[in-house]
Amino acid sequence: MNGPTQVKVKWDDDGIRIDRWFKNHYPQLSFGALQKMLRKGQVRVDGGRVQASHRIEAGQMIRVPPMPDPSDAPKPRAMSRADARERLAEMTLYEDAGVMVLNKPFGLAVQGGAKTTDHIDALLEAVSPDDARIRLVHRLDRDTGGLLVTAKTRKAAQWLTEAFRGRTIEKEYWALVKGVPQPLEGRIDAKLEKAGPKGQEKARPSDDGQKAITDYQVIEMAAQKASFVALRPITGRTHQLRAHMALIGTPIVGDGKYGGSDAKVDGLPQKMHLFCRRLVIPRPGNRPLVLEAPLHGHMKETWKLFNFDERAKPEWPEDL
């Protein structure tokens, strides 16, 4: 490559971080070298400077400076397709020609990083056919379990991405929180902004932040010690549910980042008690896809301990 070029973002790459995009398309470029290019403004998106964490959108133009020789790319050990297929099969709740829905385990990252090589995206890459990349269309935190949707075709990726971005997908999470929210049902409308040192950013309330709305209702209580709460995110900000529950004084159990010591309950594992339980996905020319994931791992054990109803069906008021 003799000089910088402009590369258009494809649908297959919609929503991923810019550093992940470079890793996928230019594996010979080290993360440190990319960071230097970003600092100097040599890499731009639609003419503007961005950081490594910036998420790109289909149709945007990325300015790509001259790249090192591809022969310099590291050659990591390839994941076995058979092993990846077996692991994904254990997680798969639903699959058709265009969509595959997983019940993600707690503690498994969705995407990789500098020190993370075992993640959902690597499994998808290992089992993807040569002519079609199975791709993520939304994300969950590493320590959150539950429903995770992937697209098997470009057409499916397009309408799913638009549905998540356009907030036409109904989402319901289950959580165990410390204490009992008051009132027992309500709406949290508090703008959030990302702040803090690199690698330790947190979502915090701010009048200058992005609009963030969460509906909640208490389903069951363990005295005043903890509560089984259903959460309905109306918007989709990073760490929104975690930040909002901490804001009203009932942090999610196990969420030390937002709840600190207040997120601990004696006798329970100090692991995140947050689970994507239900999704209702509109489908073009077809009935909506209604998905529910059964609890597993430490949350299932906690629900058994408190005798909470794993078949609970929260009803959300239209005028809340």
Rank of each mutant, 00 (worst) to 15 (best):
G98R: 12
R133E: 09
D141S: 15
L147H: 06
A97L: 08
E201R: 15
A190V: 11
V110E: 01
T117D: 05
V177L: 08
L136R: 01
L140Q: 14
G107D: 05
E193T: 12
R139F: 10
D96L: 12
Y94L: 13
A122M: 00
A114P: 01
D189W: 01
T161N: 15
A190E: 05
L160P: 06
V110G: 01
P129L: 09
A163H: 11
E162Y: 04
G166T: 14
K104F: 05
L124Y: 03
K198N: 03
G199H: 06
L160W: 04
G146V: 12
E193M: 09
R139M: 09
L93A: 13
T153C: 05
G107E: 01
G113W: 11
D131P: 03
F106Y: 09
K194V: 08
A157G: 14
V110Y: 00
T116K: 11
V99W: 05
L102T: 07
L123S: 00
V177M: 04
A122H: 00
R135M: 11
E201C: 01
L148F: 09
G113Y: 13
I134V: 13
T92C: 15
F106A: 13
K202M: 06
L102H: 07
A157C: 14
L140S: 06
D143I: 02
E172P: 05
G98D: 10
S128F: 10
F164W: 12
K104C: 07
R139D: 15
D143P: 09
Q158K: 10
L184Q: 14
K202S: 04
K115L: 10
V149R: 13
I134R: 13
G113F: 11
K115C: 02
A151E: 08
L124S: 10
P183A: 12
I169F: 10
Y173L: 13
R142G: 02
D189G: 02
D131H: 06
V137D: 11
D96G: 10
D143R: 08
T150M: 02
I169R: 04
L124M: 15
K198M: 10
K115Y: 07
P183N: 08
V177R: 01
L123F: 00
K155Q: 13
N103G: 13
V99D: 04
N103C: 13
L160K: 06
D96N: 15
F106I: 03
W159K: 08
G166A: 14
L160S: 09
P197N: 10
L108P: 07
R139N: 15
G146Q: 13
D131L: 02
G196D: 02
L136I: 04
A175N: 14
A97D: 15
